[in-house]
Nucleic acid binder design. Structure first.
Lengths: 249, 249
DNA sequence: CGATGACTTGACTTCGCTCAAAGACAGTGG
DNA sequence: CCACTGTCTTTGAGCGAAGTCAAGTCATCG
């Protein structure tokens, strides 16, 4: 009955979004007024990039690229959720980030991808060859500035991730993840939080054991802060205490 | 007797480095051969930036800028060490990064700095007004690409930081910090690791209590892996086991 | 040499990890 | 449609390690 895909009422929005070309969301360097995330690309830039990019579809669980592979392209997510991770020598898996629509991934080091990226839900992504992109940068330095802006934004996200992991209590970490999922979810369904990934993925992102994630969920339920409807849906029951928990780092 | 400054035999190297203009070290996107860090800027670019930048000196402990302040400039470190941190609502302080020579900081979000940056040692930094830099980017997209490269490199560092914090054992985290300090220290003094910051700074970076840092130090000594000469100097005694500990994430 | 801040050590508590076993779910093929 | 099967999830018991509180030592600077 429940699938890993987004709710059906979203496919329409996705389709129109795709027609407008790739989009990057972030916080511009100098926009003094803007408090939140905004579209970084102009209409012209999006149309231009749309001509340079190829649209690719991946089913859930499909690996987009592996760590260490030749990095010949970067990707912008049109729709779907992916995880970016590395397997450590100890056998543990570290999820570095969950990435959503309008996020950028595939920025390389020394010509190689550093993390493995795998689709969690069905994924639509714009693929941009690095040589093509470099050429576009040369012609439009302003476009490059937007990409720089997005990279800095992801740097902030990574720093935020370190803050999440630094929390001692598992329930606080879990609350911050739910908060992130809520921010990235459809603005319409504000009542429910869609959890696309498995408990194991959550544990690897939060740097917890799988069991600790489950126990933290039970604790949030026991305290009446969050209800876990099923494996992939949660509902914030007490907004005030939830926000307090998220903020009390 | 001991001061927080770098060893004296370094001032010469620092002086010559400063004459050559600002420098950014990182891993280029596409250099397939290069395994390690290289200079990202060309001689021409460094000279150009040197003309656009003002050189600033800060004593140890001086705050370069505070989180939330108007972000009118970015900085490149010529010599010295700084910490980039935020104070959290709980009263805890999170050190997001230690930054060294050839590192970049001050990339803003919405016209405001996000972290506070404070000098740990006496600091020499190149100050680049954002308007001036944006203008330079417009004329030299290649220069902008190098900055993008550096930003991505710092993104990797932030992800690495999350991996460090994710380790369960304090000794492993401490070993990774020492490893980082060794990498960024003078190539000459390979025997000793210079620790410029306080135990409290280390704790705030590693997401440990101050006491846990001390206990982890004692443990490394007891195991014969590292000697702590004084508060600001350590010596790797058993390289093999040290490297194994660093790698066994 | 006294004051202040940084560091060290010990005792006790808490909470997450490991191991183990059972329960719920989705996809497969009969 | 249903049993089968592997994966994902949940729960419990015991252990270990980091946090907290408290007391003290060391160092550095006036």
């Amino acid at each position: 009955m429940r699938t890993v895909t987004e709710p059906a009422n979203h496919s329409g929005a996705v389709a129109t979004a795709l027609q407008r070309g790739p989009s990057l969301r972030g916080i511009p360097f100098r926009d003094l007024a803007g408090a939140g995330l905004v579209e970084l690309l102009s209409e012209t830039q999006r149309h231009h990039l749309a001509r340079l990019a190829t649209v690719q579809h991946f089913p859930a669980r499909r690996v987009v690229y592996r760590a260490g592979a030749d990095a010949d392209a970067v990707f912008i997510i049109g729709a779907g959720v992916v995880k970016s991770f590395r397997d450590l020598p100890s056998g543990r898996r570290r999820v570095a980030a969950f990435l959503f629509a309008n996020d950028l991934f595939g920025l390389a080091a020394a010509g190689r991808y550093v993390n493995t990226v795998q689709a969690i839900t069905p994924l639509t992504a714009y693929r941009l060859e690095v040589s093509v992109l470099a050429d576009a940068f040369r012609r439009d330095p302003e476009l490059e500035l937007r990409f720089l802006c997005k990279a800095v934004h992801e740097l902030r996200e990574a720093q935020h991730h370190a803050i999440i992991i630094g929390r001692r209590h598992a329930a606080g970490r879990l609350a911050m993840l739910l908060h992130m999922l809520e921010r990235n979810g459809p603005a319409s369904a504000r009542t429910d939080v869609f959890i696309p990934m498995t408990r194991s993925d959550m544990a690897n992102y939060l740097s917890l054991s799988l069991e600790a994630v489950v126990r933290a969920s039970r604790r949030l339920e026991r305290q009446g802060i969050v209800d876990f409807i099923d494996r992939h849906h949660a509902r914030i029951r007490d907004r005030q205490r939830f926000d307090a928990l998220v903020a009390s780092v």
